[in-house]
Design a protein around this nucleic acid. Structure first.
Lengths: 208, 208
DNA sequence: TATTATGCCATATTGATATATGGATAAACT
DNA sequence: AGTTTATCCATATATCAATATGGCATAATA
């Protein structure tokens, strides 16, 4: 693609900017007014932009401009549109509903999972019970909702109506939850329910 | 805002969809063609959409539609636009340039930092030297470029042309680098250069 | 030196688009 | 029963907007 002159670049920018701001591209006249040139001159510029491959336009269509983006810009935009916002829940006291919208503390960005629309959420970890697995107090875990898991996977489990992070031990005889901290005992013989599996961990360091 | 009828909702959706796909909104005629109704009827629908507050339009302006979005939609869009993609670099052998675009392994999404345009990048951690700080082999660290740091902060340092993750010890007498693993010794009396500070850690668990 | 690209003007014409008006039916609401 | 709302139609007109054409000057390029 040939390089654009300053004038051409400005006009191209104006078209795209106008489109974003007004939801529709400008007319030739509007471009002319902006740059204090006549329609005829605008035609020349538009022609140049088309010839150089930076602009497409539909014939006889009002405001029928389409600014061509480079592959790099495109893939960047695509990647951005592939970003999902998932809710970050705060810690929930026993008995309270976990997924109440009142408990949403914010949102966390996450690359969209290619495997369909699975439901994710994020949770702030409280306590030291998973420290031997490198999960610290204050870390954020991103969780995929599911009600089963394999032996050794880190899960969010509902224990006495409270959500906790633990390693699932799914042995032949019985499933139980294990803390990753030698000071804590495994939780055996208590009913629990798995609500999701930890798929990612995030830790934010305080920024000065 | 009054509720929309099915027909009105469809027309509203079409206008927005057309805008996204073509970069400009449709004309009255195009709407009429889509729904096989006459322009007069389209006028009625547009009028209703305006009266109910779902659509704005400029008088005498071709394709002058603007679909009004709810506050919720707006804030979601805004949050998405506040997402940045930062490059993820792979491990670099000693002597090779670190920030060469050849070394970009992918991109990581990150909430845009409100404090201006700082430069960030991401790096995959190799080795066990920071395990006592909960940073494991394979973890991804997000780094803010800077050439100084405070005592105790985790930094990326250039040691013999190789980038490593270490804790900075900035004592009265001399600065040195410390591993967070009792098996490793601190690196004293060797020249190094700080290239950034770790501001976030991410760990992906294998998803089955 | 001839040619092409850039940057500008003016004006006429064709076609695209929006607007205005009037009329009709059925359903919902007061 | 009367009124509003939601659907539709048809047609005329004004204006918006794109296109076509021709001309001029300068700088870069073959």
């Amino acid at each position: 693609m040939d390089k654009l002159t300053i004038k051409q670049q400005r006009i191209l920018n104006f078209i795209e900017k106008h489109r974003i701001e007004h939801t529709y591209p400008p007319t030739l006249k509007e471009i002319g007014e902006k740059f204090k040139i006549t329609i005829g001159t605008v035609q020349d510029h538009i022609y140049a932009l088309q010839k150089k491959g930076y602009l497409e336009r539909k014939k006889d269509i009002a405001r029928g401009f389409k600014v061509i983006k480079s592959d790099e810009e495109k893939s960047f935009e695509k990647m951005k549109s592939d970003v999902n916002l998932i809710p970050l829940y705060g810690n929930v006291a026993a008995g309270e509903p976990i997924f109440a919208s009142d408990n949403i503390q914010g949102y966390v960005t996450m690359e969209k999972n290619p495997k369909g629309h699975q439901i994710h959420f994020a949770l702030k970890v409280k306590g030291e019970s998973m420290i031997d697995s490198g999960i610290y107090d204050g870390d954020i875990v991103i969780v995929r909702k599911q009600d089963t898991a394999e032996d050794g996977e880190i899960v969010i489990a509902l224990l006495d109506d409270e959500a906790t992070v633990k390693t699932l031990r799914n042995k032949r005889i019985k499933a139980y939850l294990e803390a990753s901290n030698s000071k804590y005992k495994a939780i055996v013989n208590r009913p629990f329910q798995i609500i999701g599996k930890v798929i990612e961990l995030r830790r934010q360091y305080s920024v000065v």
